[in-house]
Nucleic acid binder design. Structure first.
Lengths: 86, 86, 86, 86
DNA sequence: CTGCCATTTTACCGGC
DNA sequence: GCCGGTAAAATGGCAG
């Protein structure tokens, strides 16, 4: 079990380290929001904008994927070179 | 309003950048967990351990406040002089 | 659809009734706290005590699972026979 | 301090009892929702309805209070008898 | 695809 | 009375 225990310790510590960094970033985000509020911006509105932009990005990506797929299928666009090599 | 718009854009972009990094870390954590599972470890158990370790850490500082808490709870500020007489 | 509508109405009303009772209890708790404060007790300290008591209760059952957790985490299912050889 | 300690114990226990009942009701609500889902209803839609009905009720109450106030001010409605006594 | 868990959002409460 | 932090609720994402 020694090997397993060592592996486990490694896993635990790696995750804890990553979560710590994640928390730091979450705190950074809060700081930016606090600063924004201190400058008279509305926190809720900012969150709404972030959400919309994220949604837009997702939808854009999705639309591009669909369009790309159709264009390739119709021979209107060169398939990715890696596709050829594969 | 130009200044405000610039400020707003800056806020938005800073937060988006931080959230992107946060997402990268979340993905990293998932990768570690996947690797652990692939090596025969139980994901749920690992999560439980992480939770316990975090709690232990919190409790270390927490116990230091308990005595103070009880003293306050018992009304160090005399609630009512007549209580003593009762 | 009549049956479904009746069912839905019943569901809604049952939940509303339960939420109303829940709110009553929340108000009762507030009343007790107000009374406590009026008698010179510290509200925050009381809340801390309640939290500690709840946690103690949780931990009693929690400790029973820790050993099992670690055994699972250590991969009771042999991860890889070669680990033993290593 | 004996009196205070007894009072504190009483406060703690009353609150714990109330919170327990509150939790029971929360569980009951979850049960009703589960049952609803099992009967093919959409949980999110039900929550939306509950929210709308609550909002309506608040608005109605508010409107009634305003109307009542104005009507009393205009002498169009008998003031509350207790108002007179005060 | 369902239930579970993390994250997010919302409401509350005490402090200033 | 507003603001900050904290607990509850709601939402979304993921594993099984």
């Amino acid at each position: 079990m020694q090997v397993a225990a060592d592996q486990l310790r490694s896993i635990i510590e790696r995750i804890e380290r990553l979560e710590e960094e994640k928390k730091t970033l979450a705190d950074d985000i809060k700081d930016v929001m606090s600063e924004a509020k201190a400058n008279g911006f509305d926190a809720k509105a900012i969150k709404t904008i972030l959400k919309l932009r994220k949604k837009d990005e997702n939808e854009r990506t999705e639309e591009e994927m669909i369009l790309d797929t159709y264009m390739k299928a119709l021979g209107m666009r060169q398939p990715d070179l890696f596709d050829e090599a594969a």
